[in-house]
């Protein structure tokens, strides 16, 4: 008796990859849209206080400089962790830079992202240092809190 050749009986098993690839691309698209690289200024060491009135600004701030204050009286400015006393020099450098670019420091905005447990006196000292360098517009940043609904 003649045996059938194995080549004739074995069928090639093929998996349909299309739905999986569709789903994977949809997931990638979802994460790409939601990923926000612009939020790099947010530092995990800072726990912002919350406020129900804190709404994202509708127009972009004018020449913003972000100062982040930790609860142990340090300032994060330009990625560097500085003591309060070491902030004067970088601020005057920023002031010169703005002036060279034709921007009046009085019109620049200092964004203060201070930890909820930071001392108010330290925040005031930082603002005073900014004032000494002719900055006078401040934006106190808080995270958005949803208003509690009354029962």
């Amino acid at each position: 008796m003649r045996m059938p050749s194995p080549k004739q009986t074995l069928a090639k098993a093929e998996m349909d990859m299309t739905p999986m690839i569709d789903m994977t691309f949809q997931l990638i698209a979802f994460f790409m849209v939601l990923l926000n690289f612009a939020e790099t200024e947010q530092d995990a060491r800072i726990k912002l206080p919350s406020s129900e009135l804190a709404k994202p600004p509708e127009v972009a701030l004018e020449s913003p400089l972000v100062l982040q204050l930790t609860k142990d009286d340090k300032v994060i400015f330009g990625g560097e962790l500085l003591p309060i006393s070491g902030l004067g020099q970088p601020l005057s450098r920023e002031k010169r830079f703005l002036e060279l670019n034709g921007v009046d420091p009085k019109e620049a905005t200092i964004v203060i992202r201070a930890d909820g447990d930071a001392k108010t006196g330290v925040v005031q000292e930082v603002m005073q240092l900014c004032q000494e360098n002719d900055f006078e517009i401040f934006a106190l940043r808080a995270k958005q809190e949803l208003a509690e609904e009354e029962p």
């Binding site: 690839i21 994977t24 691309f25 997931l27 990638i28 994460f31 790409m32 939601l34 990923l35 926000n36 939020e39 947010q42 912002l48 406020s51 009135l53 804190a54 709404k55 994202p56 600004p57 701030l61 905005t109 964004v111 603002m127 004032q131 006078e136 517009i137 401040f138 934006a139 106190l140 940043r141 808080a142 995270k143 958005q144």
Partner: peptide, 26 residues
């Protein structure tokens, strides 16, 4: 595609909206 997916998953953070209180102090 899976490498891209893993990259995006690990870089994904739920960011709370932030707002400002503007004050002018000469």
């Amino acid at each position: 595609v899976f490498l891209l997916l893993i990259f995006f998953i690990f870089n994904f953070r739920i960011v709370v909206q932030e707002g400002d209180f503007n004050i002018r102090m000469p």
